[in-house]
Simulated assay, not measured.
Amino acid sequence: MNKELTGFVKAWEAAVRKSAGPKKRSNSIFTPMSVAHVDDDDESRHGDEVSQVEKILSNGDFFTGQWLDDGPHGHGKYLWTDGCMYVGEWQMGGIMGKGRFSWPSGATYEGDFKSAYMDGKGTYIGSSGDTYKGCWVMDLRHGQGTQSYPNGDFYDGEWRKGLQNGHGRYQWKNGNHYIGQWKNALFYGNGTLMWSNGNRYDGCWEEGLPKGNGTFRWGDGSFYVGVWSKDPKEQSGTYYPSGSCAGHLEWDPQELFSVDLLDCTVCACEKVSIYPSQKSLKMLEGVK
Protein backbone atom coordinates (compact mmCIF):
# COMPACT_ATOMS: atom_id res chain seq x y z
CA MET A 1 0.00 0.00 0.00
CA ASN A 2 1.21 3.54 -0.68
CA LYS A 3 1.99 5.94 2.19
CA GLU A 4 -1.22 7.94 1.69
CA LEU A 5 -3.44 4.85 1.88
CA THR A 6 -1.43 3.46 4.81
CA GLY A 7 -1.95 6.72 6.72
CA PHE A 8 -5.66 6.72 6.00
CA VAL A 9 -6.01 3.07 7.13
CA LYS A 10 -4.21 3.85 10.41
CA ALA A 11 -6.57 6.74 11.04
CA TRP A 12 -9.48 4.46 10.10
CA GLU A 13 -8.37 1.83 12.63
CA ALA A 14 -8.08 4.45 15.36
CA ALA A 15 -11.55 5.74 14.58
CA VAL A 16 -12.99 2.21 14.68
CA ARG A 17 -11.42 1.59 18.09
CA LYS A 18 -12.76 4.89 19.36
CA SER A 19 -16.26 4.17 18.07
CA ALA A 20 -16.22 0.84 19.89
CA GLY A 21 -15.79 2.58 23.24
CA PRO A 22 -18.46 3.90 25.62
CA LYS A 23 -21.23 5.75 23.83
CA LYS A 24 -21.40 9.47 24.48
CA ARG A 25 -23.90 11.96 23.25
CA SER A 26 -22.23 13.76 20.37
CA ASN A 27 -22.38 17.49 19.94
CA SER A 28 -24.22 18.77 16.92
CA ILE A 29 -22.06 20.16 14.13
CA PHE A 30 -24.40 23.15 14.11
CA THR A 31 -24.33 25.48 17.12
CA PRO A 32 -27.45 27.25 18.40
CA MET A 33 -26.02 30.49 16.98
CA SER A 34 -26.34 29.05 13.46
CA VAL A 35 -30.09 28.55 13.68
CA ALA A 36 -32.13 30.84 11.46
CA HIS A 37 -35.83 30.62 10.74
CA VAL A 38 -37.11 30.90 7.22
CA ASP A 39 -39.31 33.73 8.45
CA ASP A 40 -39.01 35.55 11.76
CA ASP A 41 -42.80 35.66 11.89
CA ASP A 42 -43.16 31.95 11.23
CA GLU A 43 -45.44 30.60 13.94
CA SER A 44 -46.00 27.21 12.36
CA ARG A 45 -43.06 25.71 14.21
CA HIS A 46 -43.61 24.90 17.86
CA GLY A 47 -41.46 22.79 20.18
CA ASP A 48 -40.32 19.61 18.43
CA GLU A 49 -41.99 20.28 15.09
CA VAL A 50 -39.87 19.88 11.97
CA SER A 51 -39.74 22.83 9.57
CA GLN A 52 -38.67 23.14 5.95
CA VAL A 53 -35.78 25.59 5.43
CA GLU A 54 -33.30 26.89 2.87
CA LYS A 55 -30.02 28.26 4.13
CA ILE A 56 -26.93 29.77 2.54
CA LEU A 57 -23.74 29.56 4.60
CA SER A 58 -21.12 32.26 4.92
CA ASN A 59 -18.66 30.26 2.77
CA GLY A 60 -21.21 29.73 -0.01
CA ASP A 61 -22.36 26.20 0.90
CA PHE A 62 -26.10 25.60 0.66
CA PHE A 63 -28.59 23.50 2.61
CA THR A 64 -32.24 22.88 1.96
CA GLY A 65 -34.45 20.42 3.79
CA GLN A 66 -36.04 19.55 7.09
CA TRP A 67 -34.87 21.25 10.28
CA LEU A 68 -35.39 20.49 13.95
CA ASP A 69 -34.13 22.61 16.86
CA ASP A 70 -30.45 23.31 16.10
CA GLY A 71 -29.77 21.25 12.98
CA PRO A 72 -30.97 19.27 9.95
CA HIS A 73 -33.25 16.39 10.83
CA GLY A 74 -35.22 14.30 8.35
CA HIS A 75 -34.49 14.68 4.65
CA GLY A 76 -32.24 17.35 3.19
CA LYS A 77 -29.67 18.37 0.61
CA TYR A 78 -26.27 19.90 1.32
CA LEU A 79 -24.26 21.42 -1.57
CA TRP A 80 -20.60 22.36 -1.15
CA THR A 81 -18.99 25.10 -3.20
CA ASP A 82 -16.53 22.60 -4.71
CA GLY A 83 -19.42 20.71 -6.35
CA CYS A 84 -19.81 17.84 -3.88
CA MET A 85 -23.39 17.17 -2.81
CA TYR A 86 -25.26 15.00 -0.32
CA VAL A 87 -28.97 14.25 -0.61
CA GLY A 88 -30.62 12.02 1.95
CA GLU A 89 -31.43 11.46 5.58
CA TRP A 90 -30.19 13.47 8.56
CA GLN A 91 -30.44 12.90 12.30
CA MET A 92 -29.91 15.66 14.87
CA GLY A 93 -27.63 17.73 12.63
CA GLY A 94 -25.59 14.88 11.17
CA ILE A 95 -25.62 12.76 8.02
CA MET A 96 -27.22 9.49 9.09
CA GLY A 97 -29.32 6.90 7.26
CA LYS A 98 -29.95 6.40 3.54
CA GLY A 99 -28.48 8.91 1.14
CA ARG A 100 -26.54 9.75 -2.00
CA PHE A 101 -23.20 11.55 -2.14
CA SER A 102 -21.87 12.83 -5.46
CA TRP A 103 -18.50 14.25 -6.48
CA PRO A 104 -17.90 16.91 -9.17
CA SER A 105 -16.02 14.26 -11.17
CA GLY A 106 -19.31 12.41 -11.69
CA ALA A 107 -18.59 9.68 -9.13
CA THR A 108 -21.43 8.73 -6.78
CA TYR A 109 -22.11 6.68 -3.65
CA GLU A 110 -25.62 5.61 -2.77
CA GLY A 111 -26.46 3.64 0.34
CA ASP A 112 -26.07 3.71 4.11
CA PHE A 113 -24.36 6.46 6.10
CA LYS A 114 -23.37 6.61 9.77
CA SER A 115 -22.06 9.89 11.16
CA ALA A 116 -21.24 11.01 7.57
CA TYR A 117 -19.24 7.84 6.88
CA MET A 118 -20.13 5.46 4.06
CA ASP A 119 -21.05 2.65 6.43
CA GLY A 120 -23.38 -0.31 5.91
CA LYS A 121 -24.41 -1.39 2.42
CA GLY A 122 -23.95 0.83 -0.58
CA THR A 123 -22.81 1.24 -4.19
CA TYR A 124 -19.92 3.40 -5.35
CA ILE A 125 -19.69 4.25 -9.06
CA GLY A 126 -16.50 6.01 -10.06
CA SER A 127 -16.07 8.58 -12.79
CA SER A 128 -14.28 6.00 -14.96
CA GLY A 129 -16.93 3.30 -14.47
CA ASP A 130 -15.23 1.61 -11.52
CA THR A 131 -18.15 0.12 -9.52
CA TYR A 132 -18.29 -1.47 -6.06
CA LYS A 133 -21.45 -2.87 -4.51
CA GLY A 134 -21.39 -4.31 -1.03
CA CYS A 135 -20.44 -3.66 2.58
CA TRP A 136 -18.64 -0.61 3.95
CA VAL A 137 -17.19 0.35 7.31
CA MET A 138 -16.16 3.98 7.88
CA ASP A 139 -15.62 4.86 4.19
CA LEU A 140 -13.75 1.66 3.31
CA ARG A 141 -14.83 -1.50 1.51
CA HIS A 142 -15.08 -3.99 4.37
CA GLY A 143 -16.98 -7.29 4.30
CA GLN A 144 -18.58 -8.96 1.29
CA GLY A 145 -18.69 -7.06 -1.98
CA THR A 146 -18.36 -7.11 -5.75
CA GLN A 147 -16.10 -4.85 -7.79
CA SER A 148 -16.34 -4.18 -11.53
CA TYR A 149 -13.36 -2.48 -13.17
CA PRO A 150 -13.43 -0.17 -16.21
CA ASN A 151 -11.32 -2.61 -18.27
CA GLY A 152 -13.90 -5.40 -17.86
CA ASP A 153 -12.30 -7.30 -14.95
CA PHE A 154 -14.48 -8.35 -12.00
CA TYR A 155 -13.95 -9.37 -8.34
CA ASP A 156 -16.44 -11.01 -5.99
CA GLY A 157 -15.42 -11.79 -2.45
CA GLU A 158 -14.23 -10.52 0.90
CA TRP A 159 -12.70 -7.13 1.69
CA ARG A 160 -10.90 -5.68 4.67
CA LYS A 161 -9.86 -2.05 5.18
CA GLY A 162 -10.46 -1.22 1.52
CA LEU A 163 -8.55 -4.13 -0.01
CA GLN A 164 -9.30 -7.71 -1.07
CA ASN A 165 -8.72 -9.92 1.98
CA GLY A 166 -10.05 -13.38 2.70
CA HIS A 167 -11.65 -15.54 0.03
CA GLY A 168 -12.55 -14.21 -3.38
CA ARG A 169 -12.79 -14.73 -7.11
CA TYR A 170 -11.18 -12.47 -9.71
CA GLN A 171 -12.28 -12.71 -13.35
CA TRP A 172 -10.22 -11.11 -16.11
CA LYS A 173 -11.82 -9.86 -19.30
CA ASN A 174 -9.77 -12.36 -21.33
CA GLY A 175 -11.38 -15.32 -19.50
CA ASN A 176 -8.62 -16.08 -16.99
CA HIS A 177 -9.76 -16.32 -13.38
CA TYR A 178 -8.43 -16.88 -9.87
CA ILE A 179 -10.30 -18.45 -6.95
CA GLY A 180 -8.74 -18.56 -3.51
CA GLN A 181 -7.29 -16.59 -0.63
CA TRP A 182 -6.22 -12.94 -0.67
CA LYS A 183 -4.22 -10.60 1.52
CA ASN A 184 -3.90 -6.87 0.88
CA ALA A 185 -5.20 -7.19 -2.69
CA LEU A 186 -2.72 -9.96 -3.57
CA PHE A 187 -3.04 -13.75 -3.97
CA TYR A 188 -1.90 -15.13 -0.62
CA GLY A 189 -2.46 -18.64 0.75
CA ASN A 190 -4.15 -21.43 -1.19
CA GLY A 191 -5.66 -20.65 -4.55
CA THR A 192 -6.24 -21.73 -8.14
CA LEU A 193 -5.43 -19.67 -11.22
CA MET A 194 -7.06 -20.88 -14.46
CA TRP A 195 -6.20 -19.63 -17.91
CA SER A 196 -8.67 -19.46 -20.79
CA ASN A 197 -6.47 -21.92 -22.78
CA GLY A 198 -7.14 -24.69 -20.22
CA ASN A 199 -3.92 -24.41 -18.19
CA ARG A 200 -4.12 -23.97 -14.42
CA TYR A 201 -2.03 -23.65 -11.29
CA ASP A 202 -3.23 -25.08 -7.95
CA GLY A 203 -1.23 -24.41 -4.82
CA CYS A 204 0.28 -21.91 -2.46
CA TRP A 205 0.76 -18.20 -3.10
CA GLU A 206 2.67 -15.42 -1.42
CA GLU A 207 2.62 -11.72 -2.33
CA GLY A 208 0.73 -12.51 -5.54
CA LEU A 209 3.15 -15.19 -6.81
CA PRO A 210 3.34 -19.01 -6.53
CA LYS A 211 5.40 -19.87 -3.46
CA GLY A 212 5.65 -23.33 -1.91
CA ASN A 213 3.91 -26.52 -2.95
CA GLY A 214 1.87 -26.37 -6.14
CA THR A 215 0.91 -28.04 -9.39
CA PHE A 216 0.81 -26.61 -12.91
CA ARG A 217 -1.48 -28.49 -15.32
CA TRP A 218 -1.88 -28.27 -19.06
CA GLY A 219 -5.12 -28.75 -20.92
CA ASP A 220 -3.92 -32.09 -22.33
CA GLY A 221 -3.68 -33.59 -18.81
CA SER A 222 0.09 -33.39 -18.29
CA PHE A 223 1.32 -31.61 -15.18
CA TYR A 224 4.33 -30.40 -13.21
CA VAL A 225 4.30 -30.72 -9.42
CA GLY A 226 6.82 -29.45 -6.92
CA VAL A 227 8.02 -26.55 -4.81
CA TRP A 228 7.68 -23.15 -6.48
CA SER A 229 9.69 -19.97 -6.11
CA LYS A 230 10.61 -17.01 -8.28
CA ASP A 231 14.20 -17.83 -7.34
CA PRO A 232 15.22 -20.79 -9.57
CA LYS A 233 17.61 -22.04 -6.88
CA GLU A 234 14.68 -22.61 -4.51
CA GLN A 235 12.48 -24.39 -7.03
CA SER A 236 12.28 -28.14 -7.60
CA GLY A 237 9.72 -30.46 -9.10
CA THR A 238 8.78 -33.27 -11.46
CA TYR A 239 7.05 -33.27 -14.82
CA TYR A 240 4.40 -35.95 -15.57
CA PRO A 241 3.32 -36.30 -19.19
CA SER A 242 -0.15 -37.33 -20.26
CA GLY A 243 0.06 -40.86 -21.69
CA SER A 244 2.78 -40.93 -24.34
CA CYS A 245 2.68 -37.13 -24.68
CA ALA A 246 5.99 -35.49 -23.93
CA GLY A 247 5.38 -32.11 -25.44
CA HIS A 248 6.23 -30.11 -22.30
CA LEU A 249 9.45 -31.84 -21.26
CA GLU A 250 11.53 -28.83 -22.26
CA TRP A 251 9.23 -26.40 -20.44
CA ASP A 252 11.02 -24.19 -17.89
CA PRO A 253 8.94 -23.77 -14.67
CA GLN A 254 10.18 -20.18 -14.49
CA GLU A 255 7.98 -19.43 -17.51
CA LEU A 256 5.06 -19.33 -15.08
CA PHE A 257 6.56 -16.14 -13.61
CA SER A 258 7.97 -14.57 -16.77
CA VAL A 259 5.20 -15.44 -19.24
CA ASP A 260 1.97 -16.95 -17.87
CA LEU A 261 1.40 -14.43 -15.06
CA LEU A 262 2.02 -11.35 -17.19
CA ASP A 263 -1.63 -11.12 -18.30
CA CYS A 264 -2.99 -11.75 -14.77
CA THR A 265 -2.52 -8.34 -13.18
CA VAL A 266 -5.07 -7.33 -10.54
CA CYS A 267 -6.52 -3.86 -11.09
CA ALA A 268 -6.55 -1.24 -8.36
CA CYS A 269 -9.80 0.43 -7.31
CA GLU A 270 -10.40 4.01 -8.35
CA LYS A 271 -9.02 6.46 -5.81
CA VAL A 272 -11.65 8.48 -3.97
CA SER A 273 -10.68 12.16 -4.12
CA ILE A 274 -12.21 12.98 -0.73
CA TYR A 275 -14.44 10.93 1.56
CA PRO A 276 -17.85 12.23 2.71
CA SER A 277 -16.69 12.09 6.32
CA GLN A 278 -13.84 14.47 5.46
CA LYS A 279 -16.20 17.15 4.16
CA SER A 280 -16.87 19.85 6.72
CA LEU A 281 -20.42 21.02 7.38
CA LYS A 282 -20.17 24.74 8.11
CA MET A 283 -22.43 26.48 10.61
CA LEU A 284 -25.54 27.87 9.00
CA GLU A 285 -25.61 31.64 9.23
CA GLY A 286 -27.80 33.09 6.47
CA VAL A 287 -31.27 32.63 5.11
CA LYS A 288 -32.61 32.69 1.58
Score class of each variant (00 low, 15 high):
165 N>F: 06
159 W>V: 01
154 F>N: 09
185 A>E: 13
150 P>A: 15
138 M>A: 11
183 K>F: 10
112 D>Q: 00
154 F>Y: 15
92 M>N: 05
99 G>H: 04
165 N>S: 15
117 Y>L: 06
140 L>M: 15
133 K>C: 13
167 H>W: 13
114 K>E: 11
141 R>V: 12
147 Q>Y: 00
116 A>F: 00
147 Q>F: 00
96 M>A: 04
116 A>K: 03
180 G>E: 13
117 Y>V: 10
178 Y>I: 14
128 S>M: 00
152 G>K: 04
122 G>R: 03
122 G>C: 04
120 G>F: 08
167 H>Q: 15
174 N>Q: 08
104 P>V: 13
107 A>R: 02
184 N>G: 03
150 P>N: 06
94 G>D: 10
124 Y>Q: 02
138 M>Y: 14
187 F>W: 10
108 T>I: 12
152 G>F: 12
142 H>W: 09
111 G>L: 08
147 Q>C: 11
105 S>W: 09
137 V>L: 15
133 K>S: 14
143 G>C: 10
117 Y>F: 15
161 K>H: 12
133 K>W: 00
156 D>V: 11
138 M>N: 08
183 K>I: 03
184 N>A: 13
106 G>R: 00
143 G>V: 07
100 R>I: 14
118 M>C: 14
183 K>V: 11
166 G>S: 09
116 A>M: 01
91 Q>W: 00
107 A>G: 12
117 Y>W: 14
97 G>H: 04
157 G>S: 03
101 F>W: 14
163 L>W: 03
102 S>R: 11
135 C>A: 15
128 S>Q: 06
118 M>H: 01
161 K>L: 11
159 W>R: 03
175 G>R: 03
150 P>L: 09
93 G>Q: 03
115 S>M: 10
110 E>I: 11
130 D>P: 06
103 W>A: 05
176 N>L: 02
152 G>A: 05
147 Q>P: 00
153 D>A: 14
114 K>H: 09
166 G>Q: 09
125 I>E: 14
89 E>H: 02
153 D>S: 12
128 S>R: 05
160 R>D: 01
135 C>T: 10
120 G>Y: 08
107 A>D: 04
